[in-house]
Design a protein around this nucleic acid. Structure first.
Lengths: 137, 137
DNA sequence: TTGCATAACTGTAAAAATTACAAAAATATT
DNA sequence: AATATTTTTGTAATTTTTACAGTTATGCAA
C-alpha cells in the first residue's frame, strides 16, 4: 500500500495537509463525488476547509492525471480516482452511476482518421438492474 | 428531402416558427453548437428570438430524441443533431470537436452486468491531425 | 368574424456552479 | 529571526441554466 504522501510527491505535487486529506478521501470513497460532496464530507472533520481549496486541489490532481473529470448528466462535474480502464453506466431512472470493467481492450487504436488517440471514455445509459427488478410500473 | 415541418410533427412537436428555424439551423450547421451559438447565429435574422426559447426548444428536441446533449470539456453544453451512430474526438490542443464514424458495431450489447443498455457514447481525446502536422513546437 | 381557451414566446429575475482575487496563514529559505 | 514563496481561505464576480409571469400567437366554437 503506497503512501499518499509518496503518490503526490511522485507526481510533482507538494503534499500539503489539505491535498493529503482530499486525496485520501477520493481513494477511500470511490463514488465519483462532486466538489460539493467532497467538501461537505470533509468539512465535518476539517471545519476550516474552504470550498475553493477543494476546487483548486481537484484541478491540480486533474492536471497531474491523478484524477478524471466525469460528465454525468447532472449539472455538477464529478471526479473519478479509479485509474484503471473502465466504462461508466448511468441509470436514467434512478440516476445512479456504475463502474463497468473493460475486459477486452476494445480500444487500443493509436490513431483514428490520423488523429492521435490518447484517451477513450465509454459512457453507457439505460436502466440498471435494481430498477429493472422493481416491477412497480 | 423530408420537410422540417413533417419531421417535427412526426415526433409530436407542434411546428411553430421558432421551432422550425431552430431545427433547420441545427440540420444545416452540424457543428455541435452551444445554446449561445445557436442564439447568436439566429438572432441576426430573427431579432425577436429569445434565448429562453432556444433553451426550451432544445430541451424539447432532446426529450423527443431528435437531438443529443453533448458534454465537451467546455463549460457550455453542446448539441448534436446527427442521429447516426458515431463517436466524438476532442483535440486537447486546439479544442476542436470531430465526428468519427462507427464502422463496426462495437457495442450491440443489450445487457451488461444485468443492466439494460439503451445508449452508448464513445468519447475520444488526443491531438488532431491538424495540430499534429503543425510541427511548431 | 368575434370571443375564449390553450399553447408558445419573451424578458427579467433567480439559482447554481465555477472562477478570480486579495488577504491571511503556513512553509521554506537565507 | 527575517524574508520569500507557497498554500489556503473567504468573498465577490462571472457564467450557465432555470423559473416565472406577462404578452403574444394560435386554434376552435359559436
Amino acid at each position: 500500500m503506497k503512501k499518499t504522501k509518496d503518490i503526490l510527491e511522485n507526481n510533482g505535487i507538494n503534499p500539503s495537509y489539505q491535498r493529503l486529506i482530499i486525496y485520501k478521501y477520493l481513494k477511500e470513497n470511490q463514488i465519483h463525488p462532486s466538489i460539493d460532496r467532497i467538501y461537505n464530507d470533509l468539512k465535518n472533520t476539517n471545519p476550516t476547509l474552504s470550498k475553493t481549496t477543494v476546487y483548486n486541489t481537484v484541478k491540480l490532481f486533474c492536471e497531474k492525471d491523478l484524477l478524471l473529470r466525469l460528465h454525468c448528466d447532472d449539472k455538477q462535474m464529478r471526479y473519478d480516482i479509479n485509474t484503471h480502464d473502465h466504462m461508466h453506466f448511468k441509470c436514467t431512472k434512478c440516476g445512479k452511476l456504475y463502474d463497468i470493467n473493460l475486459e477486452n481492450n476494445l480500444f487500443d487504436y493509436d490513431y483514428i482518421d490520423n488523429h492521435k488517440i490518447n484517451y477513450v471514455h465509454i459512457g453507457l445509459k439505460g436502466i440498471c438492474k435494481n430498477c429493472l427488478s422493481d416491477k412497480k410500473d
